[in-house]
Amino acid sequence: MEKFFELLTQMNPFDLVQVIFWGMAGAISFYFSIGNARVWTSISIGFFLIFLSQAYGINPWGHYQKLTAFHYIVGTVAIMMITHGFLEYYVFCRTFEISGNKLIVYLSTLGILAASGVFLMINPNPSPNTIRNIRMVENAIWVFLCVMNIELVRKIYLAIKDSDISKGFIAFGLVFFFIFLWKGSELYLQIFQWDQDWQDIIALMTDESTDFDQYPARIQFSQEVRRYAGLLSGISVGGTFTYIYRLLK
């Protein structure tokens, strides 16, 4: 517990606020998944997993590299779950088919996470470079699936725009827009090796140089976008679920 509070005090206040908001959003979405229709389970579980993926900063055992890698894998599973949920919702809007049950969704999610854990355990300890690669893959998946989800949400909204819940999908569109900016800016920094992880790696482990100093403006801009979009994402997810909860009450 002491270690946990030590980590909290060491964290950037902005990042801490972001984690707190994601914690609230995760709690709201998980609560939402319990009391609502099956199709919402994948979506809300996915948003809850974002909190888990973001919580590595306050994880007392976060210095274990396999655990850090696991946080990023959880982040990847999160957007896949969310996308699966919106795809199901879209299918429902077109065919009115509702299949499966909540327990299977919960168990499948646990199964995927357990399999990811096993994958990390049976493989060598990931290097900082490997962890960065995993994070980059996560961000790439997030960016492309965000674009896809914005399109899905648009189509769902058009199909159900005269129902009570339709405005909730506009809010989801906003959520994915913020997440796109958040993850997109992070991916942008990673692709051009301007991210903090790469700076740490080359400082300690390689003799590679960096052009970090040549583009201070765009790097600064991207970092700011990443910070604020990340914060807004967490706030908007919590707000959206609260809003939908009220719409469906």
């Binding site: 919702y89 009115f96 819940i165």
Partner: peptide
Amino acid sequence: ERAAKLLISGTN
């Protein structure tokens, strides 16, 4: 009812 739960409020 099952389908409506995805679209409208409990009151409605």
